[in-house]
């Protein structure tokens, strides 16, 4: 798969130990700024979270060691089970739909036509909107009394649905707005990937006279696969960490139907003042995402074609 990498000469370990030590230290020096930043803002909080998950703790810190009790409590609680369900559904609703939509838009705008820049700007514009601002816009659109969705439903003669108050629809409604919010970023990345594909390939295809779909299947998608792999991985992780739109649109309700794990962590830590339970949930979520990402690299990367 990676012939180029294998051919690179491996530096011999035995030669010039003194210079090696210096190079080693020099390397560390270059890494130091990022190690400090990661250490302070990522690694320390992570280990602190794992530590806190074994304690009864409030916002002032831990006060009683309880071992695995927090985990037992969470795993046996109905509320956490519904959180897991909501999270999985949310990921399934948002990731495939978001990537397919972005891929479709990117393929549309990958042509060299006059004025294409306008469409490219439009399709990527959601990237420039903050989650909070977009959520508020969607909140108005979903409003049963004054929102545009109920107006359309009324016009079509359907009964108005209370999108955000009905547990059957709330998660779908939040997912729809999330797909819209994330489409801009995915679109931009995929478009970049498309632009990178060697045009000679398409010229050859034209000479061979293959159909568009064949060209898409045999040239575009394989050449795009590293980009797609990146965007799938990042979208998955993003979807698991979604917070802003849920906080603004539904606050985890109705009947906990949108209470995804991240929101449940927030509620436990900052509203219910139960930092121990929140930490334990965070640890569980961390390992789930880690496992999923590892699986993706193991299974998904085989299909990725690196040039």
């Amino acid at each position: 798969m990676n012939d180029a990498r294998d051919l690179q000469p491996v530096p011999s370990q035995k030669s010039l130990p003194k210079r090696n030590l210096f190079a080693f230290l020099e390397g560390w020096l270059y890494l130091l700024p990022s190690i400090i930043l990661f250490g302070v803002f990522v690694f320390y909080p992570m280990f602190r979270t794992i530590y806190l998950s074994f304690f009864l703790a409030d916002q002032m810190g831990p006060f009683e060691f309880v071992g695995l009790e927090n985990y037992q409590y969470i795993l046996s609680s109905d509320s956490f089970q519904s959180s897991v369900k909501a999270t999985i559904l949310f990921v399934l609703y948002t990731v495939p739909a978001g990537i397919l939509l972005a891929l479709f838009l990117a393929l549309l705008t990958n042509e060299k036509i006059k004025g294409i820049g306008i469409f490219r700007t439009l399709f990527s514009s959601t990237m420039g909107m903050s989650v909070a601002a977009s959520s508020v816009i969607w909140m108005f659109m979903y409003n049963p009394s004054i929102g545009v969705f109920s107006r359309i439903a009324e016009w079509l003669g359907f009964p108005a649905i209370q999108w955000l108050q009905d547990p059957d629809y709330a998660l779908l409604a939040v997912s729809l707005s999330t797909v819209w919010m994330n489409a801009g970023f995915a679109y931009l990345i995929i478009l970049g990937g498309l632009q990178n594909i060697d045009t000679h390939l398409y010229e050859n295809a034209k000479v061979a006279g293959v159909s568009y779909l064949y060209q898409l299947r045999r040239i575009t998608l394989p050449m795009l696969s590293p980009t797609l792999f990146f965007i799938v991985t990042v979208s998955f992780i993003n979807a698991f960490q979604t917070f802003g739109q849920i906080d603004i649109l539904t606050k985890g309700g109705p009947v906990e139907s949108t209470n995804v794990i991240v929101y449940s962590i927030y509620k436990d830590a900052f509203i219910n003042n139960d930092v121990g339970s929140a930490s334990a949930q965070a640890v569980i979520l961390f390992f789930c995402v880690l496992l999923l990402t590892a699986l993706q690299f193991k299974l998904g990367e085989r299909k990725v074609h690196y040039q």
């Binding site: 409003n143 009394s145 004054i146 209370q162 955000l164 108050q165 539904t250 309700g253 109705p254």
Partner: peptide, 17 residues
């Protein structure tokens, strides 16, 4: 059912819902 948001509830009341 007017949800959990005070402003939504008041808006519904004002629009006669």
């Amino acid at each position: 059912n007017s949800g959990q948001n005070w402003d939504d509830m008041r808006a519904s009341f004002q629009t006669g819902t």
